[in-house]
């Protein structure tokens, strides 16, 4: 059972658009098993969503991404959870991780402009209760996201017919 789940997850991780019929065929399973397994994993929140990897640089939309290192004072009885919740509830926050090492949390923020991101940090994040310090780094270019290379000029260079 666990094996079935892992196999489905690995394929969906690379291509969330793969339909249940194809999943069933390539894994040699009944489609009903695939459908049920996916439903179970959605309910258990093993599968939490189906996002699309977008290279916004190629669109007309202006976007900037920043990574912010945050030092946090854990709170009695709550640890980091309370502060984390306060941070991730902001729409601007795209990812939030609790870290080991020299700081406590990594926050990814997306905004339209650097100014917008800076204002978010200055007005919302830095003054937040429990947040001790922030250090903001802007992303200049994305090369790879979630295992996918964003710029691939990959064409099939193999000879078309070989023995």
């Amino acid at each position: 059972m666990k094996n079935v789940r892992t196999k489905i997850l690995k394929l969906l991780e690379n291509n969330s658009k793969m339909d249940t019929k194809d999943l069933a065929v390539v894994l040699g399973m009944d489609e009903s098993v695939v459908i049920n397994t996916i439903q179970d994993m959605e309910q258990e929140q093993i599968i939490c969503g189906y996002n699309t990897i977008i290279n916004w640089d190629k669109t007309d939309d202006e976007r900037v991404t920043a990574l912010i290192e945050v030092k946090v004072a854990p709170q009695r009885g709550e640890g980091f959870e309370r502060v984390a919740e306060r941070i991730y509830n902001y729409e601007e926050v795209t990812s939030l991780y609790l870290m080991s090492g020299g700081f406590d949390m990594t926050v990814f923020i997306e905004g339209k402009t650097m100014k917008e991101v800076a204002q978010f940090v200055a007005r919302k994040l830095a003054p937040m209760e429990g947040v001790l310090s922030t250090s903001t780094h802007f992303v200049l270019k994305k090369y790879k996201e979630n295992g996918t290379k964003l710029e691939q000029d990959k064409k099939d260079e193999r000879l078309v017919v070989t023995a």
């Binding site: 099939d156 193999r158 078309v160 017919v161 070989t162």
Partner: peptide, 19 residues
């Protein structure tokens, strides 16, 4: 191979090496 080569927009299932 020579026949296929004259058709640059053809797609192939004729390759004997990994992708």
């Amino acid at each position: 191979f020579d026949i296929v080569s004259e058709m640059p927009d053809a797609i192939s299932l004729g390759v004997g090496e990994p992708d």
